[in-house]
Amino acid sequence: MWRSSSPKALSSLFRRVPRGLNGVARVGRRQVYILPTRSGLSFAAVLLVMLLGSLNFQNNLGLLFTFFLASVGLVAMHHTWFNLLGISIRVRGGPPVFAGGEASFDVVIGSDGQRTRFDIRVPARRVSQQSIAVPGGDQRTIRVGLPAARRGLQALDELTVETRYPLHLFRAWCYAETDATTLVYPKPAEQAPEPDRAAGDNQRCALQGRLGTDDYLGPRAYRNGDSPRQIDWKAFARERGLVVKQFGGEEGEDVWIDWSKVTAPDAEARISLLTRQLLDAGEARARFGLRLPGIEEGLGRGRAHLQRCLARLALYDHAQANDPLDRAS
């Protein structure tokens, strides 16, 4: 009941688990919060009735039993707290998604000591809750989903890790800082006009592009993101360096996907159309390139190239007309 309704102003008062230099947040003593759950409160109420009844009837056995359950509750409370203490939390961004989908993050929970940490949960709005046990000296991953509304880098600033181990009488939780991001591609438009062809006639492309034969096109130098299957390992063994064998059907079928060639009411709609064009081009196995104001991604083919182009679009800042990736490098 305290989980969802804590307002932002209040939640800013809670201490966060800081991230270490290696990106791992380790839960310390002063960052673990604990409160009774609804079951815990009803357990306490039943115990109170038992206590009063036993005291009144001077029933020592009833008292003994009540004290036993009360002690169990108290020990359990400490178990709950200690269950969270000292775990390590590392968050990784998941694979890129399109806007409107769900950005996923991998939360890696590690238990460094000897004890198994039971019932660790990372409550998230969308994903059905999952409860895991982390054996001592090991780590386990929980995947958390977050609705990805806009393109760009979706950050998971903060994350709650909680436990109700062992008896569900108390809930202990902590807030962990993260800097994990997941790349969100722009939402593709439903339909987009055909992009311009750089060379060759459109007719031939339309005919053969669908056929998509796997003819050997020739070698090319390796680029990051190329599939290991395409690497010419024999050439590598002859110490000629990493060379990629290019396959593809159509020669001279180069498509430029160009910012200036698309008409749209605003920049986001334009990006959305461009995304659709990129996806179509990728599906048609054409060679394609991307031109944005101030940025050009050369002609290429394959998933890695498509992803690179999509990333350009995802991070494209129209107002500044420059590319954060470039700025970063």
Binding site: L63, L64, F67, A70, S71, V72, V75, A76, H79
Partner: peptide
């Protein structure tokens, strides 16, 4: 948990006012 609760139980039983 039960075993850990036993010493506390005994203390409570011995000293809790009747």
């Amino acid at each position: 948990v039960s075993v850990q609760a036993i010493p506390l139980t005994l203390v409570l039983f011995l000293l809790f006012p009747r």
